[in-house]
Design a protein around this nucleic acid. Structure first.
Length: 312
RNA sequence: CGCGGGGUGGAGAAGUCUGGUAUCUCGUUGGUCUCAUAAGCCAAAGAUCGCAGGUUCAAAUCCUGCCCCCGCAA
């Protein structure tokens, strides 16, 4: 039985860890995860999904503030790992640590590398309108998702795919692929293949402002944003209420492309013949099926219209 | 004490500042019109205005305390 250390933080990593344990022979001796963070309006300190899961399975959990000091390196070295498995840990792993395990550091990445290297591959695949994505098992080197590929599997992206559905799907995909591949990798039966750097694309971490709707966005782009950017950072439209002279953000939670019935200026709202709330853009228009005004609960586009029609 | 919005018939809102017995749109139910309609017309049901206390002749509205929901920030 190999000596494995697992590193990971969010739900996706939990899925991978769960599958790893279920596979029987690769239960990690140590799990490294990010430190507890204050979450929500009340700033309650919350452990990562991986921490909770590991503790339930009686695995030692370690939450170092940094991996870049001697203490971290010594601690890991002391475990004499054959291999470290990483899934969305959230911090850069220094070279000193990469060099410790004899079978290297194996990473689960949720895209078809070299496409979408970086922190948000799932969202970027959706934003770009890719019709497929997948999971990649690769070796970590010093670069950002640049290491050689051990194995890969492809997953189609459905038209109505959202971040949340794809995230869940790819977590399973990645976990399955890892447990399929890991034994062969540890046994030395797989020769990793270098990535084709000329085909590389970057999936940079998303910022709040990436979810703002602007006049230059067309309907197709916004529709993809809605599927890719919820629940975070969300897609927001700034609305103005003439009567109260206020500006409010309107989150768009669900939308679909529709046929234009009128010719209105970009970012104006109207109602279709079917009484659905409709957002006009520079090209095409969108039916807003579910929206959430600032300070309110999510509601249907029609409900929003009922209460705001005087301002539209 | 991080910042802010809100709780009004089943839904979304107005009304609150400038107290005076509840308004609008939608839905529901019944009727009616139409070749027909997620259409029109007519009618009806449905609210102790988040909870508790206070001020007042009178409180959705002013004061005090509490509960709950949400957006931002992180």
């Amino acid at each position: 039985m190999s000596n494995i250390i697992f590193m990971g933080t969010p739900k996706l990593a939990e899925t991978v860890l769960a599958r790893l344990i279920a596979s029987g022979t690769h239960k990690p001796k140590l799990v490294i995860t990010q430190q507890d963070k204050p979450v929500g309006r009340k700033q309650i300190m919350t452990p990562s999904p991986v921490k909770t899961f590991a503790q339930e399975h009686g695995i030692e959990v370690w939450q170092p503030a940094t991996l870049k000091d001697l203490a971290a390196i010594e601690k890991i070295r002391a475990h004499k790992p054959d291999c470290i498995v990483v899934a969305a840990y959230g911090k850069i792993i220094p070279k000193m640590i990469i060099d410790i395990p004899s079978r290297g550091i194996v990473n689960v990445h949720t895209s078809l590398l070299p496409r979408w290297r970086g922190a948000s591959p799932i969202q970027h695949a959706l934003l770009a309108g890719d019709n497929k994505t997948g999971a990649t098992i690769m070796l970590i080197d010093e670069g950002l998702d640049t290491g050689p590929i051990i194995s890969q599997s492809t997953c189609p992206i459905a038209r109505e795919e959202t971040y949340e559905t794809l995230y869940a799907k790819l977590a399973e995909f990645g976990a399955d692929l890892l447990v399929e591949t890991l034994p062969d990798w540890l046994a030395g039966k797989i020769i990793p293949e270098a990535q084709d750097n000329t085909k590389a694309t970057l999936a940079p971490i998303l910022r709040k402002q990436d979810g703002e709707i602007k006049p230059e966005h067309d309907a197709a782009t916004i529709e993809r944003m809605v599927r890719a950017l919820n629940p975070w950072p969300g897609v927001v439209l700034e609305t103005r209420n003439m009567k109260h002279e206020t500006r409010k953000m309107l989150k768009i939670l669900k939308a679909r492309i529709a046929r234009c019935e009128q010719n209105l200026s970009p970012l104006s709202l109207s109602l279709t013949a079917q009484k659905e709330l409709c957002l006009y853009t520079k090209e095409g228009c969108l039916v807003l099926e579910t929206v959430q005004p600032e300070g309110k609960k999510p509601m249907s586009g029609h409900d929003y219209y009922l209460g705001n029609k005087s301002a539209l």
